[in-house]
Design a protein around this nucleic acid. Structure first.
Lengths: 245, 245
DNA sequence: GGGTATTTGTTCGTATGTATT
DNA sequence: TAATACATACGAACAAATACC
């Protein structure tokens, strides 16, 4: 992994700072990538030809800067990039990522027209059994899956919403095309659970890691519900940040 | 499980409604408790002496009312009581439960004075290494653990906060006693993870079920940070509801 | 469930060079 | 120059957490 592990002794730069710089270089050169486990402290000490304490000091400095994650009994890991996903009155996937200067992608996995189950109907303010359009979409950032979203709309009001979404890759723009200039969140519920096989597959995460789930209702300017959404986030890669409070 | 499974035929009451009533009685009598798996549809059908479709109709009715959770390939489960925990600008544990007409309890598990780690210091707006008071508290509702909370305060500003909390059982009242008339949330971050041994023990939940974690900063009227808090919720028993949106 | 190997966490002690007083 | 404080570096031993069989 390390191309060159020679340190300069008596150079005026502390050995542990040289090791720190080494590790930073490894990350910049992608020899160390997020989630990767570092060699053990003992092994690093041997490679660098220093005492284990000296390696520990370098690692501690980088942990303090949030670049490493050290776990007793397990090892030291390069910190995964966690995405701060902002949740508030105006939650928009693409705007959210744009703010972080990340390009987001939306992929339509499936869509169907079906009869509204009770809970969904209540959220949308329609009668149970009325036809609804259900969209399943995978959201990615930098090629990594971020969330698996289910979006449900009244099929009467938005019969062509699935095609709009497929073409535009955005709920906001699909709704715009259907004449909804703006919408806001009326309700958000957050919980956590373990993913089923399909969710784990789409989110590319192990089944024994949790997912964060949000259920939300968006309403138009007049307060009429237009979308009921369920978003499943890979909890290891995404944190929700509430704004403004 | 079922004490009596005889149904009255040609009684004017549909068989599936009688079965539905049977199941409700079982829940009221605690023969069926939250999280418990029902016998399979076939087995129930045999016990009641009806066709499986008849049992399905009764289960579907109760699922629609949110009392059962039916999962294909797994079985039917009595829905766990989930607590809707409201999160917003003014999040207060006791007020939250009072709104649901539940009496909450707070138990001080531990408190200590220690040097502030970098992240904590940043949240509280003090220098790393400054002394802080750390409180570990278990929150319960109806005798069931709801959340395990860590609260960190500046030891300079609130030297006696741990004793106040121990006596009053509430962060809000402890802060009141220290002269903080009001406080609001400035920041909330939500994520999910798996519990460690201690967390699972306190929350009385298995280690393979996830926990919901919120990190928050509360500020006083002048905007000065006064508390950094971490709350760990048993995800199977608590959902977070954002208010107003 | 118990035992073992691995890995990090912690605490001793010792020594040396550098900057400050 | 001498005394002192501090950062750096090494060595050894044990504790605690975790994974694996």
């Amino acid at each position: 992994m390390h191309v060159d592990t020679t340190l300069e002794r008596a150079s005026g730069v502390a050995l542990w700072r040289q090791i720190e710089q080494h590790l930073v270089s490894d990350m910049e050169a992608k020899r160390l990538t997020p989630g990767m486990r570092l060699p053990s402290e003992s092994e690093l000490a041997e490679r660098f030809g220093v005492n284990r304490h000296t390696v520990r000091q370098a690692i501690a400095a980088l942990e303090d800067k949030g670049m490493f994650l050290v776990r007793q009994g397990l090892g030291t890991f390069v910190h995964e990039h966690v995405l701060d996903y902002s949740v508030g009155r105006r939650t928009r996937f693409n705007e959210n990522l744009a703010r972080l200067q990340i390009e987001g992608q939306s992929e339509l996995l499936a869509s169907a027209i079906e009869a509204a189950p009770t809970q969904t109907a209540r959220a949308l303010g329609i009668r149970a059994g009325q036809p609804v359009v259900r969209i399943l979409a995978l959201r990615s950032a930098n090629g990594r899956p971020v969330s698996l979203g289910t979006h449900v709309f009244s099929a009467k009001r938005f019969p062509g919403i699935a095609e709009r979404f497929a073409a535009l890759g955005s709920v906001t723009r699909a709704l715009e095309a259907e004449g909804v200039a703006d919408y806001v969140r009326k309700h958000t519920r957050i919980f956590a659970s373990m993913p089923d096989a399909e969710e784990a597959l789409h989110l590319r995460q192990p089944r024994n890691r949790p997912i964060l789930v949000t259920e939300s209702v968006n309403v138009d300017r007049t307060g009429v519900p237009i979308e009921f959404g369920i978003a499943r986030f890979a909890a290891d890669r995404v944190q929700l940040v509430l704004d403004p409070p």
